[in-house]
Design a protein around this nucleic acid. Structure first.
Lengths: 380, 380
DNA sequence: CGTCTTCATTCGCAGACCGAAGAAAGGTTC
DNA sequence: GAACCTTTCTTCGGTCTGCGAATGAAGACG
């Protein structure tokens, strides 16, 4: 059932199926891929020889010979992963088995421009790489989720709002040079969507992941692949005009955007206006967990706004799942409000089979996606 | 550049490239497909032998040997095409060259149920088939665009609003039995999108076609293929809630849907309420052409509503083109209003390369799409 | 008039994938 | 427990696809 990343039965496809647990033996692969047993056997043998796949004992018989189980071996390869936010950066190492380790998070300001960011990343990554190597691991490369539009072919940042100096910055090449490692960059929501899809819902063909943090972004998986649209800008929902935002000016230069009423940044401002002192999304989360009424109401209201916009997306795109990621998705009222709006506003035909849930890989979702991206693209 | 209908270099792909004028010779195909010249030559020879492709003299030299031009021959095959509306049905014959002929249009009421429709279609199609055969043509099959959700795999109508008796009706199989011809059924907007894409914009990967007639539907082309979503319901925009529709009840059972203020049916009602006697979209069009202020204002307002919803779609889906089809799209103010809303509300990054235009195949767009669908699927 | 460019075909070859046959290892049934 | 069926996996030709080099065809250019 899993959708082909490249082609049916390609190395990447086989590895993904095994990694996600969708298949456990050669016979499973035959059923899943629809290829001849001989073909599957040859392909698997190849991957075993390369060390990308391993045999792991035998399973239980289903009335005949026991299957020889397959698993993704931890071959010691890691990708360094970076989840870049506008006011924080999270780093870690990700193995082929999909585990994040050695994670660290730093506060800092992306709007200070690309050079300080490059400096910070290069420093942290070099430390991370050294520690990983000392632990006997091979560092394959770096995967980055960036909170703005990225051209994934060139690894350049494109026209981000509110980030002076970043336009057309060659983040990939600059960092690759500094770090001495291959680097891959993509939009943060895309990266998170990729990670959630591969790790949690590999059987789904079409899903939307909304990243609700300081800003709002979304990553789209269509036919099992990241959908980018004509100009690589697909998935933007934060600059949709909503009634409640009225004439509020937005960083994009327009007015009334969703972002101005439903983003983490907007909630921080709104809470401060109401006399509730908060510094960031983490504070909001804490208040919501403690049942602080102002914060809870605002988060729920933000969820309604996001749900309103998503209802159009769901009717139009008819996905199998809407996943909510980012800091705000950890607040229950946010998820509940989105769910309520979608069930109320969308056609029964589209919501009948629709999963609406918080992203299940939690705070490391972006990290895992970025790591997976790098490990996938940089096959041995 | 043209996107693969099935696979790069498949017969259907090659024929589409030639039909659309994107390529004119084997050498063009080599450049377009990226396949080896030998492969292309073999493929073309095969199609020529089958009579699906013909050589047509020589082109002009570009400094070397002249190319041997290719064209789609009129091999005498036709598909009967049906553009089914809720209050009219348009029929005709479509050749491989993409020409519609022997078209006829009848008023009638789809809501009377499937049996009368089947009766009408069977009768008209048999006459059409007889005339085509008398003219020396071979009738390959029937293609139908249906104004409601269709499961294209089974050819069944699924849960249409306001059409009692149609749910799960096996239109394809019933009609195939009656007509003695293979039948293909798809949603009317999908069919129109397919036709416009193949005939006019084969080079585009991602486009949205909005059919604004009595109802409002949209057909989505993604990666060069019709996008249907998880449940086959993708492309619905008519049941998105818009402010201006407030509490108006909609046929879908919800309130405030776009359809209740921007569809042809809604405009007819609104004009009558204002004392302007109109029977259908054709009347509205005439009034707009004559500069009648009430009608013009209403159409423009409908265009703004549609544009508002489309702005979300465009930001999210980031298509290369938004095409407007259906009766209302022939009214200039409608197109102008949609254009204005999209340029005002969407991100520059998405509108920068965006084409917004009326569907260029006019009233026969649906017919041509349905015919093309049938001829494409029923390769001899 | 020779040379270069473009267009097209022929032909041998490599790789992908298949299917039949069979081997390995287990159940099931009398 | 012996015969037989199932399931899993491999081995071994075979077919088919598409590539690339070589070649031919036909015109442009100096």
């Amino acid at each position: 059932m899993a959708p082909p990343a490249e082609q049916r039965g390609s190395a990447a496809h086989v590895l993904e199926l095994v990694a996600s647990g969708a298949v456990a033996s050669r016979a499973d692969l035959v059923r899943e891929l629809g290829l001849a047993a001989s073909t599957v056997s040859a392909r698997v043998q190849e991957l075993v020889d390369l060390g990308l796949l391993a045999e792991d004992g035998e399973g239980t018989s289903r009335g005949g010979r026991r299957p020889r189980l397959l698993r993704i071996p931890d071959d010691g390869a890691v990708a360094l992963a970076v989840d870049l936010g506008s006011h924080h950066v999270r780093l870690g190492a990700v193995t082929r088995t999909g585990a994040a380790s050695d994670t660290e998070e730093h506060a800092y300001d992306l709007t200070e421009g690309p050079e300080p960011t490059l400096e910070l990343l290069a420093g942290r990554l070099s430390g991370l790489a050294a520690r990983q190597r000392a632990a006997g691991r091979t560092v394959r490369g770096v995967g980055i989720g960036f909170p703005g539009p990225v051209d994934p072919d060139t690894g350049r940042v494109v026209a981000p709002a509110r980030m002076p100096g970043w336009h057309l910055y060659e983040l990939r090449d600059r960092l690759a040079e500094r770090a001495g490692l291959p680097v891959l960059v993509d939009n943060d929501a895309n990266v998170m969507a990729l990670g959630e899809h591969a790790a949690v819902h590999p059987e789904l063909q079409h899903l939307v992941l909304v990243k609700a943090g300081r800003g709002i972004g979304s990553g789209v998986i269509s036919h099992g692949r990241v959908y980018r649209g004509a100009g690589g800008a697909a998935g933007d929902i934060s600059h949709v005009r909503v009634e409640a935002a009225a004439e509020r000016p937005c960083s994009c230069g327009n007015i009334g955007c969703l972002e101005t009423v439903a983003s983490g940044a907007a909630l921080v401002v709104a809470l401060r206006e109401r006399g509730v002192p908060v510094a960031g999304a983490a504070d909001i989360l804490r208040l919501v967990r403690d049942g602080e009424p102002e914060a809870t109401t605002l988060v729920r209201q933000a969820g309604r706004h996001i749900g309103t916009v998503l209802s159009v997306v769901v009717n139009f795109f008819n996905p199998q799942a809407v996943l909510l990621g980012g800091a705000l998705a950890e607040a229950e009222p946010m998820v509940a409000a989105v769910r309520a709006m979608l069930y109320e506003r969308c056609l029964p035909m589209t919501t009948g089979q629709l999963t609406i849930a918080a992203a299940s890989s939690g705070p490391d979702a972006g990290l895992l996606g970025a790591g997976r991206l790098a490990l996938r693209e940089l096959v041995p």
